[in-house]
Nucleic acid binder design. Structure first.
Length: 1090
RNA sequence: GGGCAAGUGGCGGAACGGUAUACGCGGUAGUCUCAAAAACUACUGGUCGCAAGGCCAUGAGGGUUCGACUCCCUCUUUGCCCACCA
């Protein structure tokens, strides 16, 4: 692009009514006295305007047409309708924040802005965009913060809410404020509890003893994510394990479905990989080992992915928590007294170990022989049974068969306790031999050439090392040559280096050929002996590997494993062996998942109480008549599976969180609610007898696993979200509009008695509505299908959030959605059609953290520069999907840019030089160039926005600005296009400028500009002239000649600059890429001077 | 230990296999000013050269190609996630 020398006019001219009024009536109407850019004033003005006009509030019921495809085609350039309610529903969701009173982190704003830019873009493309916001205010984060500042969580929630919503307003996002949710709102958690009950009834909730993290100093149970390398996140003291009864959700029942669906999701690949890994499917076999003791027999099942190594199993290891171990201590197996005490002692130590200790031990394996023996079912060999804490109760069966020859952990353990090691897999024929060398010598190169003659395949060679591929049969010869070369001193540099032997499927060993103190000769003698001694090369290498304390993990041939399995190749052996095991009845095919059931209960205060009661009466009843009940209807699956636990009736929801003073975690492992008698003691919903409430609250991840459903139904009080299952309730919606004002505030700030009385109110109110009716018609009477609203808006079209939620939140949401489908509430099972993870924002090279004290709070920047500047800067500082670095100087530069844009637009209006009409007349070069620039920018910005490449979109707008600023005249189209393009990033200033130019509704409802290919073409084409791939000249060629290779070649070769290099030398080849490049490849000259 | 990213000027970062360093920050000089700030103008990877121009540069080393930041191997560094997963 040619550089224009004309000066950019940066002074806003005085307002001259006679000049302006005719051409810019809207500007004149605005009759502004000051034309300086004042972000505070402008941003307040337009935020008020948007609120008043409900600019971003779609009519959720305006789209009765069911089009489950949802989002319009990516990159669609169709013109928008310009009116909300007419476009296609587009659910633009961002992960809602958990609020802290410290205020919104700039990282939050980064994510929200990125999401909002996309939403605004989609809105201008003609979609009816729904962009809701809420607060994930329940849960451990918020409670911990309350603990820290010494305030009641409810009080803290009120403060945080106010502060957070103020900030969320200030950043200028196009939120649908009518639809906000807070997870601690009883009208919200009523449904969280309802969902819990649905899972319970479906048999997806159960109780189990689990060891949980416990901080002795804070006297509280901690979630896994609060344990940082074995220490409490809050106080830093060491975390211990404690066994407690806990509620679990059977997410593992959905493991296969959760895994299989991943392939079809349009999600950030990284997140998909993380989910697959988290689910961690592994195929293998469960094999039964008989255990012998003096008094009896028992069996232990083990899970293995390597049944091919069964013959190599030389001992067994049990987890300390394994039930057999417990029975051992009950003397069921009556082992010798000495062992009894040792085992008891070991288990005691293992269980008292803190996480920190286990990490500090560097995974040094410990264990104890139980004195028991097991029978290896394939060869009937007796093998010892050990207990060791490297085996985990939580995976597989909590017991393993140990194959030290082919598993590193078993190997380490066997080495330490001198247990038998028996190799059963032989590496296959191909392997590589390599050696490392610090400096080449000429002799060494000779040696290599000799090897190559032998047919040894060259694999790799660089400055420091070489790797050769050698067939097993050639190995002897290889070593001989190596030996010779050493004797010839070619290897003199090799002292202290290693010979690395790599088999076809992975590294096996590094053999120390030359130890530091030994002379070369000594070592070679050893090698010579070795070579002679072992005619079977593999054995030699195996021995070497064995000496090197390495076990072989790779694939190969099965050996030492009986006639049936010998000589099979591992991949073929595994299925065959499993078949054999099944035939013999000693094992079966089994799939295991790394995914564990979801531990849902928390012994905490700040969460939705789990809506169950325990009734002794019903417990007895169920236990006594279990077999009968199964076939009758009286109890649901959850109640039968968990005798005595009875679900709260729907009309009694919510179970309000009592408003109490003593809310801090107890040291007992019980929830603070357990101490409140008026809460605990209640009636059994089933038999009416005395019962006790569950006092645990549910995990905060449950709150956030369904919030996107609630957004579309916030004004509806008697269903969680619109669904045909709740069809009877549609009428009642409107009546409940008043909910947020009255009920919520009471419940948040009321006393215990108030909240209890409110429970009554709710009850009676709900009884009048259809609230209790839906439980009757679920799920049988409902037809599978969607209500119009759910069909129109869900699943979410675009979900943007942090990669830190790759696993838990996204997986739990998917699980809950699947359960909803299975309940017949919806007809889809994946909640987020498209998900994109944004990157991490850092501050001047360092991660933002409280401990570093470099957390950026956006408020001060918004006050100083305005939200528009900050938004633009955040989007500019790096690729949105990758994150970026926040520099204070950078934001000042962006502020300049915003001011320049402001000035430019005012200049267009107020100055003669920038006459908006003049460009309408002359179809000259400048006009064409301006058109081209405009269309080019539209194309670039449009494509970049679709792919979330915000930084380059802004860069291209800057280029466009730089172009416009130097133009003598700018058309109205040019300037209004510019405003439209920048409006998703800078919503306020663009709205202001839009109104003084166009005075239409809102720039945010204007249609996104389209571009036409015909304007993108340049008149001339620049063709790069290369000689031997090096740029020597650039030709400017008329567009018409671009495809004429002959002509281009002639022109190019005549170019003086090219001539200099062509120098009449013979041309071997001419590469011509039309319109781009012509490359002359010259024949190489002997002493090529290139 | 496993998985996933990423290494480009002083800095943040651009580059469908085709003029590396767009855009911005910072810096230098200048215009305006009594002066400063702001704003604007010009220059700004390294190196040799008066200049024209040349040469060298995308973590390191190889490979593929007429041509490699881009594709393929090997290594290395950094960041993130998971981690005794049988």
């Amino acid at each position: 692009m040619k550089k224009q020398s004309s000066k950019i006019n940066t002074v806003i001219p005085k307002y001259d009514p006679s000049l302006v009024e005719k051409k810019w009536p809207h500007f004149a109407k605005a009759s502004r006295s000051k034309q300086d850019y004042n972000p505070q004033e402008i941003e307040k003005k337009w935020q008020d305007y948007w609120n008043k006009n409900k600019t971003y509030q779609p009519d959720l019921d305006a789209n009765p047409s069911v089009d489950s495809a949802g989002s319009p085609q990516a990159g669609s350039l169709r013109q928008g309708s310009g009116q909300a309610g007419q476009g296609k529903p587009f659910y633009n969701l961002m992960m809602f924040p958990y609020p802290s009173a410290e205020g919104m982190h700039v990282g939050n704003m980064y994510a929200f802005t990125g999401s909002d830019v996309y939403g605004r873009f989609k809105r201008m493309q003609g979609n009816d965009v729904f962009e809701p916001i809420g607060l994930d205010g329940f849960g451990i984060h918020s409670e911990n913060y309350a603990l820290k500042v010494g305030r009641h969580p409810k009080e803290q929630a009120r403060i945080s809410e106010e502060n957070f919503y103020r900030q969320l307003h200030a950043i200028g996002n196009g939120f649908a404020w009518d639809n906000k949710v807070e997870t601690y709102d009883p009208d919200y958690y009523k449904w969280t509890q309802w969902i819990f009950i649905q899972l319970f009834k479906k048999g997806l909730a159960y109780r189990k003893k689990a060891s949980v993290n416990f901080c002795p100093s804070c006297k509280t149970v901690l979630a896994d994510e609060q344990v940082i390398t074995g220490k409490c996140e809050r106080c830093g003291s060491e975390v211990v394990k404690k066994d407690l009864e806990q509620w679990f959700f059977k997410i593992t029942d959905y493991a296969e479905r959760l895994l299989n669906n991943i392939d079809g999701l349009d999600w950030t690949e990284k997140v998909k990989i993380a989910q697959r890994q988290w689910i961690g499917r592994s195929e293998g076999a469960e094999v039964e080992f008989k255990v012998q003791s003096r008094q009896g027999r028992d069996k232990i099942n083990v899970f293995t992915t390597r049944p091919d190594t069964l013959y190599g199993a030389t001992f067994m290891v049990l987890a300390p928590e394994h039930p057999i171990v417990a029975s051992l201590l009950n003397s069921k197996f009556k082992i010798q007294n000495s062992k009894f005490n040792e085992v008891k002692e070991y288990i005691k130590i293992a269980q008292s170990k803190t996480e920190q200790e286990r990490i500090a031990e560097g995974r040094e394996k410990t264990g104890i022989d139980t004195g028991l023996t097991a029978i290896n079912p394939v060869n009937n060999e007796e093998i010892p049974v050990w207990v060791a804490d490297y085996v985990l109760m939580g995976y597989g069966t909590g017991a393993i068969m140990a194959v030290p020859a082919h598993d590193t952990r078993d190997y380490e353990f066997a080495k330490k306790y001198n247990l038998q090691i028996k190799p059963v897999i032989k590496p296959i024929e191909d392997f590589y031999i390599g050696y490392v060398k610090r400096a080449w010598s000429k002799d060494f190169d000779k040696f290599i050439k000799e090897l190559e003659k032998l047919g040894v395949r060259f694999k790799e060679k660089n400055k420091d090392s070489a790797i050769y591929e050698v067939k097993e049969k050639n190995l002897l010869r290889f070593i001989e040559i190596a030996k010779e070369s050493v004797l010839q001193n070619a290897w003199h540099d090799l002292v202290g280096e290693k010979l690395i032997v790599i088999f076809g499927d992975g590294e096996i060993a590094s053999i120390e050929l030359f130890e530091e103190n030994n002379p070369v000769w000594e070592k070679m003698k050893t090698l010579e002996k070795t070579v002679r001694k072992y005619s079977d090369i593999w054995e030699m290498l195996y021995e070497s590997a064995y000496r090197e304390r390495v076990c072989y993990l790779g694939s190969g041939e099965v050996i030492n494993s009986g006639k049936d399995w010998e000589d099979y190749f591992v991949p073929d052996a595994i299925p065959k062996i499993i078949d054999d095991l099944e035939k013999k009845g000693i094992g079966k095919r089994k799939i295991h998942y790394h995914l564990r059931d979801w531990l849902i209960s928390r012994q905490r205060y700040w969460g939705p109480p789990i809506p169950l009661v325990f009734c002794e009466n019903c417990a007895k009843k169920i236990k006594n008549q279990k077999s009968k009940i199964k076939n009758e209807g009286g109890f649901n699956k959850g109640e039968i599976g968990n005798p005595g636990w009875i679900a709260i009736e729907d009309e009694d929801l919510p179970v309000l969180l009592p408003d109490v003073k003593d809310w801090k975690p107890k040291g007992t492992g019980e929830s603070p609610l357990a101490g409140i008698e008026s809460f605990v003691n209640t009636k059994c919903p089933n038999c009416g007898g005395p019962a006790k409430r569950e006092t645990d609250v549910s995990d905060t991840f449950l709150d956030s696993s369904w919030y996107f459903f609630r957004y579309i139904s916030t004004e509806i009080n008697d269903v969680p979200f619109p669904s045909p299952a709740f069809s009877q309730t549609q009428q009642a919606h409107a009546e409940n509009d008043a909910r947020s004002g009255s009920t919520k505030n009471q419940s948040l700030h009321g006393s215990l008695s108030e909240t209890l009385s409110k429970t009554k109110d709710l009850k009676s109110k709900n009884n009048q509505t259809a609230f209790n009716s839906f439980s009757n018609d679920l799920p049988s009477s409902s037809k599978i299908g969607n209500s119009a609203r759910t069909a129109a808006w869900l699943p979410v079209d675009m979900y943007i959030g942090g990669a830190e939620h790759s696993v838990l939140h996204l997986l739990y949401s998917r699980f809950i959605t699947m359960v909803f489908k299975d309940l017949g509430l919806i007809d889809f099972e994946e909640p987020f059609s498209k998900f994109r993870a944004h990157g991490l924002l850092i501050k001047e090279g360092a991660k933002m953290s409280k401990s570093r004290g470099n957390v950026v709070i956006p408020d001060a920047y918004i006050r100083k520069f305005g939200a528009d500047t900050l938004r633009l800067y955040l989007m500019f500082l790096g690729p949105f999907k990758q994150g970026g670095d926040f520099y204070d100087t950078g934001i000042e530069g962006m502020h300049k840019f915003v001011k320049r844009v402001w000035t430019l637009v005012h200049n267009v209006i107020l100055s003669k030089a920038k006459d908006p009409d003049s460009s309408a007349k002359p179809q000259n070069d400048r006009f064409d160039e301006a058109q081209r620039m405009m269309h080019k920018t539209i194309k670039k910005v449009t494509e970049d926005l679709e792919e979330l490449r915000y930084n380059t979109a802004i860069a291209s707008m800057m280029e466009y600005y730089n172009f416009l600023a130097k133009e003598q005249s700018i058309s109205k189209e040019q300037i209004s296009t510019f405003i439209k393009l920048i409006s998703p990033f800078a919503p306020h200033v663009s709205e202001e400028l839009w109104h003084i130019i166009e005075n239409q509704n809102s720039v945010h409802k204007a249609s996104w500009p389209g571009y036409e290919e015909k304007y993108l073409k340049e008149k001339n084409s620049n063709i790069i002239v290369q000689i031997n791939g090096r740029v020597r000249d650039v030709l400017t060629v008329d567009l018409g000649d671009v495809n004429d290779k002959q002509k281009i070649t002639e022109t190019a070769s005549r170019s003086p600059k090219a001539q200099k290099y062509l120098d009449n030398r013979p041309i071997q080849k001419i590469i011509y890429v039309p319109g781009k490049i012509i490359n002359f490849v010259l024949k190489e000259l002997p002493n090529g001077n290139g």
